[in-house]
Write a protein that binds this DNA or RNA. Sequence first.
DNA 1: CGTTACACTTCACATTTGTGAAGAAATCGA
DNA 2: TCGATTTCTTCACAAATGTGAAGTGTAACG
Lengths: 205, 205
Amino acid sequence: MKNYKIIKTEKQISHLFQIFFDYVRHLVEIPESDQEHCKEIFEPVFVKKGTILESEGTIHKYHNFIVSGHMRNFHHDENGNEVTTDINSGPRFFTSYYHFINQSVSNENLHCITDCELLRISKKNVEKASHIGLTSQEYTEKVLHFYLQSSKQRIIDLTTLTGKERYIKLMKAHPAIVKNVPLIYIASYLGLNPGSLSRIRQELS
Amino acid sequence: MKNYKIIKTEKQISHLFQIFFDYVRHLVEIPESDQEHCKEIFEPVFVKKGTILESEGTIHKYHNFIVSGHMRNFHHDENGNEVTTDINSGPRFFTSYYHFINQSVSNENLHCITDCELLRISKKNVEKASHIGLTSQEYTEKVLHFYLQSSKQRIIDLTTLTGKERYIKLMKAHPAIVKNVPLIYIASYLGLNPGSLSRIRQELS
DNA sequence: CGTTACACTTCACATTTGTGAAGAAATCGA
DNA sequence: TCGATTTCTTCACAAATGTGAAGTGTAACG
């Protein structure tokens, strides 16, 4: 089964970078010359639904930017149960940050829930390109801040909201996730059993 | 009521820095010369139980290191209810990071639950001392990573453990917190009602 | 020393969520 | 297109947690 590197036209690839640059501009400036350089160090990848891009027990090779599609991050707990810790859609970065940056063995899996269009960069290229704003210390710190803020908000939601309230909030914030991602993953992400979430859905309809 | 700057001896202050340096060494090297400099830019503060060190609606002035004592971080939700987002004991840094670093108006309160011994540094001094390892980009990134990892673990605990399991885990990891911090704050931190946590305590005894 | 305020426990009852099994629906691959 | 597999729903019952009130400490402060 060939999940990777399906051949696409120049135009399609150009479109990926367009979305990428539009997204990144929110956080940092990227001069024209850097944009050209990005096209050399970021690799466009088209991945089939179901692919595990990076898996637990390995050192993750790439820093991934989701252009389109849905991905989740999961691991196994001490009883062997899958725990979905994160679900996200493009455009955005989606990586096991801590382990990627430190190149330590990750306990996390990056799973493409739907077909995904990605741009990814190897650790080597990240280091080579440290002069580019995008891979600079400053940008990294901004990204980490952003994740820290989202994590804090999620903790607040988990401690103060009921399951139904958390689901409603997710529906409003990310309707595409609720539409495209299987219920079991959403349930795990929200800290609910699939049965409980199904009941909540029914109550809401 | 005078909560601040109770006069202490040279020896007591020296002890604070000793604990501080011991702690920081885990993450970064600090040469002798930098240690001397630290003593100039960090201010020892002795604070009475109950003091709100930094409060919501203001720009936080200091980056705090708890030498001893217990502090919590809380805010008010849209209904005006207090939410305790974090509880910690020294030695460790305890600051509303995002808002402090960006010098934006914080929505968080830093509350001394017990008498606390602190070392704190103003934003100005942080910038002045950027050549010291301790206030460098590298150190900041390590600290952010550390917080991100703790937040992720807390999310996992909140989604996969019951209230009783979370309480037991806290007891094991931080017995001093369970002993010294009022139940209402611990309950809020664990995402439980005070009544529920009290029941859990009873079941465990 | 006594008053006051706050924190903690306890209770009965309501609500939410978990559990496991069974069947319906949707999806996948040949 | 047709089985095979997975996911989703539904149900009854169990367990966990929320709620509000009442009563009992316990610490703080004058």
